[in-house]
Simulated scan of single mutants.
Amino acid sequence: MEYINNIYSDAKSLSQTEKTILDELKKHDMSPANCIWGTSICSDEVNNSFLSLGTHFKAPGPFFFGGISGLPFTGKTGFAAFASHIPDDGGALILFGPHIGISADGTVGKVKREGQADITGCCGSLAAGLQTVESGSVPVEDHSDYQQTQVSKMLIEKHAELKEADDPIIEATEIAYTQIKRELNDIITNMKETLGDKKLLLAGGILINTDWQQEDYFELRDVIEF
């Protein structure tokens, strides 16, 4: 926990975060029992630690907007589908953000996964994007690896910030957060008519993964009502 709070001072355990999110819904006059939920978080299986939140919601979930790195690759079509699933008299929540590993020994950008003796990269997609930036190579459009191409492009555009960063993986995580938030805002704003009079709460932050036997953490950054 000390290693985490040295970097993410407002991070709270997922069990605490769950309570915070439920409280936020209540503040906005929304009941999870009458809402569906979605996520725009990296598809890495370590992020399934958030799935317990689904027990509070109306229907099976979440709806997955995010691909690798958490960018909302489902786009407008995905959002329109999600909006069409909202209960007639209910609302929706989208939880978003990138993830970063911090292992028990304080190694940033890595965690020990269940069944493995050594720590491995987390988020692997952002780490791969950083390697592209460091090599100076230009991503080539590849339909077999489309999502990673977009992640690498996102980071290459921020080459100067990454070059000056004390810890590039932390900076890459911040860049990803800003990009995910921007893209979701754009998608929702452009597709707002699909919501009708139903409320949508967008809750964003940084998901901090820990070694598999420990509870993960989340630093809530933004709560936006549409």
Rank of each mutant, 00 (worst) to 15 (best):
residue 77 T to P: 00
residue 72 P to F: 06
residue 101 G to Q: 02
residue 118 D to K: 14
residue 88 D to T: 14
residue 95 L to P: 08
residue 70 G to Q: 01
residue 93 L to P: 04
residue 61 G to W: 06
residue 94 I to Q: 04
residue 115 G to L: 03
residue 66 G to T: 02
residue 128 A to N: 06
residue 116 Q to D: 08
residue 112 K to F: 05
residue 122 C to A: 15
residue 63 F to Q: 00
residue 47 N to C: 07
residue 110 K to D: 12
residue 124 G to W: 07
residue 58 K to P: 00
residue 59 A to M: 13
residue 113 R to Q: 12
residue 116 Q to N: 11
residue 130 L to C: 08
residue 109 G to R: 07
residue 104 A to Y: 08
residue 93 L to H: 03
residue 91 G to A: 02
residue 116 Q to S: 11
residue 84 S to E: 08
residue 80 A to P: 02
residue 48 N to W: 02
residue 62 P to L: 06
residue 89 D to Q: 11
residue 122 C to H: 11
residue 93 L to K: 02
residue 85 H to L: 13
residue 88 D to M: 13
residue 52 S to I: 05
residue 74 T to S: 14
residue 55 T to H: 15
residue 98 P to G: 04
residue 133 V to S: 05
residue 65 F to A: 07
residue 114 E to G: 12
residue 101 G to A: 04
residue 54 G to V: 03
residue 132 T to I: 09
residue 105 D to H: 04
residue 75 G to F: 09
residue 51 L to M: 12
residue 123 C to G: 05
residue 133 V to E: 10
residue 93 L to Y: 03
residue 126 L to D: 06
residue 100 I to K: 02
residue 131 Q to L: 15
residue 61 G to E: 11
residue 118 D to C: 07
residue 61 G to P: 11
residue 71 L to I: 07
residue 90 G to P: 09
residue 103 S to V: 14
residue 83 A to P: 10
residue 125 S to C: 09
residue 71 L to C: 01
residue 131 Q to C: 11
residue 113 R to E: 11
